[in-house]
């Protein structure tokens, strides 16, 4: 019968010859393989001390950015929450009061911004949906914890630092840079 694909292989079930049944040569060949691996360079990455280099576009835990004057970019439009396929983001919006202009860039801001890290799949769609350059995924690996409620990241854990040194560098992820690279 003609085979449907060219991937079929003829399997031989012939009896082993006398030398093959001695097994000793085969065992010696096996021992050679293992001793070769014994002296080979090890592939282990000793994690806490050594880390593997991430891709420039690695999607780790989120950061809520501020503008140059230290005001939060987020305007609580909710586009990230809508874009999120895992429904991990919840936002409570509030109107900016007089005197809060130094804190928030737009007239509306997110009073609460929670990301459930157990739901998050790190797809980066929130980052793509954001019209205000507010949310970015960083190269930081999100940490593990012992309790489920510890995984709901609140705003104080997500917002970027005010001082320049505290800010997380996401320049490689800015839309223009990324498209240019691609």
């Amino acid at each position: 019968m003609q085979s449907l694909t060219n991937r079929s292989k003829v399997v031989s079930n012939k009896k082993m010859t006398w030398t093959e049944r001695m097994y000793i040569p085969a065992i010696l060949a096996g021992l050679r393989v293992t001793i070769y691996h014994f002296f080979k360079k090890k592939v282990t990455v000793q994690y806490p001390e050594q880390t593997r280099e991430h891709s420039q576009y690695f999607r780790g835990r989120h950061v809520l950015k501020r503008d140059e004057e230290g005001r939060e970019n987020c305007t609580a439009c909710g586009l990230c929450a809508v874009a999120c396929p895992a429904e991990a983001i919840t936002i409570v919006a509030e109107e900016r009061k007089k005197g809060e202009e130094t804190l928030y860039r737009e007239e509306k801001y997110a009073a609460e911004y929670n990301i459930n890290m157990l739901r998050c799949i790190f797809c980066g769609l929130c980052e793509e949906a954001c019209p205000k350059d507010a949310i970015y995924l960083t190269t930081t690996i999100s940490t593990s914890d012992y309790h489920r409620d510890q995984f709901i990241y609140t705003k104080d854990m997500l917002v970027d630092g005010i001082k320049d040194v505290d800010r997380i560098d996401i320049s490689s992820r800015r839309k223009g840079v990324r498209e240019g690279a691609m």
Binding site: I35, H37, V43
Partner: peptide, 10 residues
């Protein structure tokens, strides 16, 4: 140790 070394581990 020997097991690890033969499996390319440390």
């Amino acid at each position: 140790k020997v097991a690890a070394f033969m499996q390319d581990r440390i």
